[in-house]
């Protein structure tokens, strides 16, 4: 099956492979007659050049045709000691290299909407202050990762709406083009239940099946066209 029809219906599709597969994926993308998908990376370093053994430069990724870089995933924060400062610096590094930072955000513990929203806003605000142009924030509460039940739609709607208001209130000083997607366990029907507050979804394991991706892209497209 192909997502061609669905994806071209106003939904942007991004594939973020491992570093080793990026070049092949961009080649494959460039073979297509239509721009069906964009290629992203799963991390980068915060400097364009320098002696940082083993790290990947955002400048280099841009040269390979990478359009997005995922930054600050909960796994990286937990297992590799990724700090908020690194997330800010990496986002700025992407931004200055014309790559759109795709920043993973979320509160640690479950709480009321305002408390969670304020905690997540602390992750968003410095990124807005240090980047220009397009940004994507992928929201997933940390407490919901791997939990038996995903975060409730009401909670997601509440926090994302709270963040959207805060972002809109910054428009005069931060004129970024900001999209907020939901980054948690996504399955069929999720995006519909979110009442159009999110600008899309960030898929993990569920998206490893092309048929699942097709379904989700169609759902996101249907919600967006309402």
């Amino acid at each position: 099956s192909t997502v061609a029809t669905a994806a071209l219906n106003h939904v942007e599709l991004v594939v973020m492979p491992d570093f080793l597969s990026i070049r092949e994926c961009t080649r494959l993308k460039n073979r297509l007659d239509e721009p069906l998908f964009n290629v992203g990376a799963q991390d980068c370093w915060q400097a364009d050049e320098g002696a940082f053994t083993g790290e990947v430069s955002p400048k280099h990724l841009a040269q390979l045709g990478v359009r997005y870089v995922e930054i600050g995933h909960a796994e990286r924060r937990k297992q590799f000691g990724e700090t908020n400062e690194w997330v800010i610096n990496k986002s700025a590094a992407c931004s200055r290299n014309s790559i759109i930072p795709w920043i993973c955000i979320g509160e640690i513990n479950k709480g009321d909407i305002e408390a969670c929203g304020d905690e997540v806003w602390e992750q968003i605000k410095p990124v807005l202050d240090n980047c220009t142009g397009q940004l994507v924030f992928a929201y997933e509460p940390v407490w919901a990762i791997g939990a038996p039940k995903p975060a409730e739609s009401d909670h997601i709607i509440g926090v994302v709406s709270y963040l959207r208001k805060k972002i809109d209130a910054e428009k005069e000083t931060n004129n970024n083009d900001v999209r907020i997607v939901y980054g948690g366990s996504a399955g069929p029907g999720l995006v519909e239940s979110l009442n159009g507050v999110v600008d899309g979804l960030f898929l993990g394991r569920f998206g490893h099946n092309p048929d699942n991706v097709k379904k989700v892209v169609e759902e996101v497209g249907a919600v967006a066209s309402k």
Binding site: T2, L32, F37, V181, F202, L203, G207, P210, V213
Partner: peptide, 29 residues
Amino acid sequence: TRQPVVAISLKMYFDPAKTLQFVSALAGI
């Protein structure tokens, strides 16, 4: 209006051939 976006982070593939197979299937190639 903001363009909706769906992204897939291919974290669980540790085989470049499998990754390419997935992307090819997605693209209908």
